[in-house]
Amino acid sequence: MAISPLGIDDSADQADADPEKDLSGEAIAGRSPFQLAMEQLRRDKVAVICLGIVIFFYIVAIFAPWLCDLFGVQVDPASTAERTESLEYDGYPAIGPPRHGFTWDHPLGIAPSVATDNLASWIYGCRTSVVVATVSAAAATSIGIVMGLLAGFARGGSATVLNWIIDFFLSLPFILVALATAPIIIMRFADQPELLDAASLIALVLILSIFGWMTLARLIRGEVLSLREREFIQAARVIGVPTRTILRRELLPNLVAPIVVYFSLMLPAFVAAEAGLAYLGIGVVGMPSWGQTINFGSGGGYFNTYPLYLWAPILGILVLVVALNLLGDAVRDAFDPKTRR
């Protein structure tokens, strides 16, 4: 505490003279809104736990081949004879559940009728869901950012056309387009089985991307409509800054929070959508998928007789989607000052 010659405490006056220091004389470290949001996320125990769960699933997806080698499992039996030896006369597994005891050779059992290892199918199914959801969400977010910036900043006829495009895609029925696309791809690549797997994966990513960007575009358009009338945007236009520079350097940094929030909420939606489409038979083909396993298990009537075969992929989808949703809610609360706890 600083005392003047007249005996007056002038520490408050010194603090006012030096606004970057507090009363103790220590420098005050400023924090950006992003740093405040990250600090809140670190204090949120639910968000930290969900982030750990999401990281676990991504590790499983990235290192799927090595994990299968570690557990000594593979998706398809090495030979027809091995498949025959692994199944009983009615198609149920000859080793492991549901009729036999637990075995480390197949920790989650063997798929009936096809004799594929359930653990290997679960691991590669996780890779399919994570890859499809991440790539689709990234593509949809990129399209939504571009369309939202252009639709919000454009004026006159250009703005009308861009808004019409957004409304047109919003009016398209997602399920009907997906149902119509799957048979076309199968017929187109029926004589090229080596390309059918990749074509079905690319088509699924395109479908999810094309039908996932409109909400973000409308959100960004509304933000841009309010930001484009601000003084810093008007000043940039007066001094002749190109439009693309204004969009990239002036508007886009102010839209980071809604973009991050929307991307975090889009991931669980696409995980569930991929599994749902695979369950309907219009997802990826030629590669393991949680939705395909559920489709085969429920169609074969194994829900009561072989519950492990169905519950493994169902629990995988449930845990991943719930963790992503809770993490997305935490990100939204952290980046939105109006809902910040």
Rank of each mutant, 00 (worst) to 15 (best):
A203S: 12
R218E: 03
V224W: 04
L204A: 11
A199S: 09
E223M: 12
L219E: 06
V205K: 04
M187C: 09
D191A: 15
L216V: 07
R221T: 04
L206D: 08
R188L: 14
A203C: 11
L206P: 11
W213I: 07
T215R: 10
W213G: 00
L206V: 14
L204Y: 00
L201R: 07
A203V: 13
V224F: 09
R218V: 00
L219R: 06
L208W: 03
L204D: 03
I207W: 00
L206A: 12
A190N: 06
A203Q: 05
V205R: 03
L208D: 03
L195K: 10
P193D: 10
A217Q: 00
I220S: 04
R188F: 13
I186S: 06
V205I: 07
I186C: 10
L225C: 04
A199N: 06
A190M: 08
T215D: 10
V205W: 04
L195G: 08
R218Y: 01
I186R: 01
G212S: 06
Q192I: 12
L196R: 04
L219P: 02
W213H: 02
P193G: 08
G212N: 04
I207F: 01
S200P: 05
A190G: 07
F211R: 05
W213T: 02
A199V: 01
E194L: 08
S209A: 08
D191M: 12
L195D: 11
R221M: 05
L195W: 13
L219T: 12
I220P: 00
L225Y: 07
L219D: 04
L225E: 15
A199Q: 09
L206I: 14
A190Q: 06
I220N: 07
A199H: 03
D191G: 14
W213E: 04
E194W: 13
L206R: 10
R188P: 04
F189L: 09
D197H: 10
W213V: 02
F211L: 01
Q192L: 15
S209F: 15
L201Y: 11
I207A: 09
L225R: 14
G222V: 06
W213R: 01
F211A: 06
D197E: 13
L195A: 13
I207M: 11
S209G: 06
A217P: 05
S209Y: 15
T215Y: 02
D191F: 10
A203N: 03
G222F: 00
R188W: 13
D197F: 14
V205F: 09
I210D: 03
Q192V: 14
L225M: 14
M187K: 11
I210K: 06
Q192P: 10
L216C: 09
I202A: 08
F211P: 06
G222M: 05
L219F: 01
L201I: 11
R188I: 13
I202Y: 12
R188T: 13
G212K: 00
I186E: 07
F211K: 00
L216D: 08
S209Q: 07
L216I: 07
A198L: 15
Q192T: 15
R188A: 15
